[in-house]
């Protein structure tokens, strides 16, 4: 049964970066801002995390650097879209291009250099329990952060006053402004949080998933995270489910290929996307609930009266 645990561990590794990046973007979009630059912030996080860890020898400094780098790039986005009211879609797209280009430049000297792996946590005794030991008590620290992040975001958005205010800013920024809430303040904070999460997700790629730096190593995971948020209709637990479903089908189809079922590999490769979309669309089938969960001011610029 060791193989079952191995497969589950592989799925968790595949799902974790998607979950973290998507959870950050969910908070951003709940505040009414659409940041399409997730891929760019993630790849910047990956390169800065790798570089800082390689230079200092400490993966924890790498994680810190990745979070700061992701947040800094999102600050640029915030200044442009919030303070200067530029188009969010165009700015987000260029943020992705900037991130990819910039990461290539920063990482040029680090291609092929040996990576630093963030060691797995190992609780003696507990981690040796058959079947579930390593799954629950022997994974990398970022995995535990991703679970804590999901719980934290759920609690914050739906159980705190600040979370309620943030959602109101995303639903109707004019009313929120009239009530004396600092719309831009909330949005700045949300965008920075999203950037930090994307940076952390990038660090997972370059410090845990495959401890190395290569250009474009995010390979589209930022876009998948973005899609997860929409298909999960902005509900944190659905993002969690979507990320793990995507990871499970991705790994499952690789196993199906290796077993040689004779199913065309192109079909198998597209399964993670199909399955995730179908399942999330079905569970989001209640139109009234979906409308209720969609941030009504999503993507609309807000310019306060002077």
């Amino acid at each position: 049964m060791e193989i079952a645990q191995n497969i589950l561990l592989t799925i968790a590794t595949a799902a974790t970066p998607l979950l973290i990046a998507a959870m950050g973007e969910l908070v951003v979009e709940r505040s009414g801002v659409l940041n399409l630059g997730v891929e760019g912030m993630m790849v910047i996080g990956a390169v800065c995390g790798f570089a800082a860890a390689a230079l200092t020898g400490s993966p924890w400094i790498g994680i810190l650097a990745a979070i700061i780098a992701g947040a800094l790039l999102s600050l640029l986005f915030a200044v442009l879209t919030l303070s200067l009211a530029t188009n969010q879609v165009a700015t987000g797209l260029s943020l992705t291009l900037l991130g990819i280009g910039l990461s290539g430049m920063i990482g040029e000297g680090f291609v092929g250099s040996p990576g630093v792996r963030l060691a797995n946590i190992h609780i003696p005794g507990l981690a040796d329990i058959p079947l579930v030991g390593r799954l629950l008590f022997g994974q990398d620290p970022i995995f535990y952060m991703s679970i804590a992040l999901t719980a934290g975001v759920m609690w914050f958005l739906f159980r705190t006053r600040t979370g309620l205010t943030l959602r109101s800013v995303g639903d109707n920024h004019k009313s929120a402004h009239a009530l004396g809430i600092s719309v831009l303040g909330y949005r700045y904070a949300a965008v920075l949080f999203g950037g930090a999460c994307a940076g952390l997700a990038g660090a997972h790629l370059s410090l845990v998933y495959t401890p190395q730096w290569v250009e474009n190593m995010t390979a589209g995971r930022g876009w998948i995270a973005l899609a997860l948020v929409v298909f999960a209709s902005w509900r944190p637990w659905r993002v969690l489910g979507g990320a793990y479903l995507f990871g499970a089908v991705t790994i499952g189809q690789l196993h199906a290929q290796a077993l040689g079922f004779g199913i065309p590999s192109q079909l198998l490769s597209s399964l993670p996307y199909l399955a995730t979309i179908v399942v999330l669309v079905i569970i989001s089938g209640n139109r009234r609930l979906t409308v209720m969960n969609t941030p009504a001011s999503l993507g609309q610029p807000f310019v306060p009266d002077r």
Binding site: I3, T10, Q212, V214, A219, R221, L254, H255, Q257, L259
Partner: peptide, 17 residues
Amino acid sequence: WFDAGKEADAAKALIDQ
């Protein structure tokens, strides 16, 4: 051609089998 994570996943799946 190039997705370090996915290639690593494929390697893990093959080794598990």
